[in-house]
Design a protein around this nucleic acid. Structure first.
Length: 472
DNA sequence: CTATGGCACGGATT
DNA sequence: AATCCGTGCCATAG
């Protein structure tokens, strides 16, 4: 019973379609671009009544695509589901069929971290190792660390631990170096060893991480010096080296790429939506990548057969195959509905957060899914589904989860970051002092909360920041 | 005594 | 109903 609650929003929609339509639409809504493509292909394969009128396939692998480059092969590309957003009101849409031939050029092929790692790893693997490699890249967390113990993976795949470890070792060599480490210590070790192979290593740094990890974590440099039997100055220098040349979380480069501009950051997430800025008419253009319902139709002959079969049917109803025509139609309508909902929601989102999109994190206005749902007149679970599991590329090139638009504290975190970057030359600010500074800027947050933000930003506590600056 | 992190509680959000 | 987030309290380290 309460299951139906999820689909309540359907009663607000103009369609008179039965509940099945809603079920299908909500299901499609919660899928991102890649998943939607898969579902479409599956549907095409299973349902002979569903027909692809206009194909858009990857010239290399033949995969059906709503956009290129193909996630597997990389080639030229196009976009669909383009719409324009005028600055304030009355968004007008350019539908996909209006500009089939619009081709846009982007410089990089955005891929997920798992895919990125897999492409490098796969060529080095024997056939038997591929399943293990797959399992490993799928278990990387957002930081690029392995979130499951190798032994668990071995147990899951029912294969010997040493085979998993062998593949894991290969994974460690892949860019970004250190992916697949099980903890931060291991990650740093991998990176430091990698640097040594390149002839840019640092012996003390390596020993420090390997042998004096506990002391290092507590920033107890005296103890570290004692363990390694060397001067504290050497330790400080090694610490500086580590801070400047390694990533504790290899996939996080897009959050702190300042130190390492040479790395390929960003774009580890594959965008489902792109927002870009147009100068001439000053506006934001949003593209939502998705298969277009205009590519599809119900096979007319099939529909006709189904219709006459139904007419001929007496009491026992139409034959089972006749339902496929309905299902195909349902799918097309659901897809259209899904894309429409995405458009409406993105439209409002971009309108509301224009400043954030153009000017950065600081300008994100606090907003909840529920508020947005009321504004655009859908159920809040609809917004939830539309937002979930999707990434958006902002005009500045950053690719972030769509849910970032609902992050309550992003703006404040950004201010904390700036305060620390600017004012901490060699007078490190304690969390309490930062809290006071924030309240002067009109932002009231507890000292404890500043501490939380600081750690999520990957910034060391005040005392340790001081040591860093003296060492450097 | 000060700064910080762990734990846990309550309220908001999903 | 489950989860996330901000916060207060307290123990600990320097």
């Amino acid at each position: 019973m309460h299951e139906l609650g999820h689909y309540q929003e359907g009663f607000l929609l103009p369609t008179q379609a039965p509940t099945m339509h809603l079920v299908m639409t909500t299901r499609l809504l919660s899928l991102n671009t890649a998943e939607l493509q898969e579902v479409l292909q599956a549907e095409l394969a299973e349902n002979p009544a569903l027909e692809l009128v206009e194909e858009r396939r990857c010239p290399q692998c033949g995969r059906l695509l709503s956009r290129l480059p193909c996630p597997h092969c990389q080639d030229s590309f196009s976009t669909v589901e383009v719409y324009e957003l005028p600055q304030y009101t009355g968004a007008s849409y350019r539908d996909a069929d209006d500009n089939d031939d619009d081709w846009y050029a982007f410089e990089a092929a955005p891929v997920s971290l798992a895919e990125y790692a897999w492409r490098q790893l796969a060529p080095d693997l024997a056939e038997a190792e591929r399943a293990i490699g797959r399992a490993l890249v799928e278990r990387l967390d957002e930081h690029g660390l392995l979130c499951e113990h190798p032994a668990e993976i071995a147990a899951y795949l029912n294969c010997p631990l040493h085979e998993v470890l062998a593949v894991l070792h290969k994974l460690h060599q892949v860019e970004p170096v250190g992916v697949g480490a099980t903890d931060i210590q291991e990650c740093l070790l991998i990176q430091l060893r990698h640097l040594q192979e390149l002839g840019q290593g640092h012996d003390t740094a390596l020993r420090l991480v390997a042998e004096a990890w506990d002391a290092l974590c507590r920033a107890n440099f005296d103890e570290a010096a004692a363990v390694l039997d060397c001067e504290e100055g050497d330790i400080l220098e090694a610490v500086a080296f580590i801070q400047d040349n390694t990533y504790p979380r290899p996939a996080d480069t897009h959050w702190s790429s300042a130190r390492h501009p040479e790395r390929p950051p960003e774009r580890l997430r594959e965008p489902d939506i792109m927002i870009y800025k147009e100068e001439d008419p000053d506006r934001l253009v949003v593209e939502i990548y998705a298969p277009s319902p205009t590519w599809l139709r119900v096979n007319p002959e099939y529909r006709e057969m189904a219709r006459s079969a139904r007419a001929a049917a007496n009491g026992d109803g139409p034959p089972a195959w006749a339902r496929l025509a309905d299902e195909a139609e349902l799918f097309i309508k659901s897809l259209a509905q899904r894309n429409q909902t995405m458009r409406v929601i993105m439209n409002r989102l971009v309108e509301a957060q224009r400043e954030f999109i153009l000017m950065g994190d600081r300008h994100l206005k606090p907003m909840t899914r529920a508020e947005l749902a009321i504004e655009v007149g859908v159920h809040e679970s609809t917004v939830s589904r539309a937002v979930s599991r999707k990434n958006v590329a902002l005009p500045n090139g950053r690719v972030v989860p769509l849910s970032i638009f609902f992050d309550r504290s992003l703006s404040v975190r950004d201010q904390v970051k700036e305060i620390i970057e600017n004012e901490c030359a060699d007078a490190p600010l304690s969390d309490g002092q930062i809290a006071v500074l924030l309240s002067e800027q009109g932002v009231e947050v507890a000292r404890r909360t500043v501490a939380k933000y600081r750690t999520t930003l990957g910034i060391l506590p005040a005392q340790l920041r001081h040591k860093h600056s003296t060492a450097a």
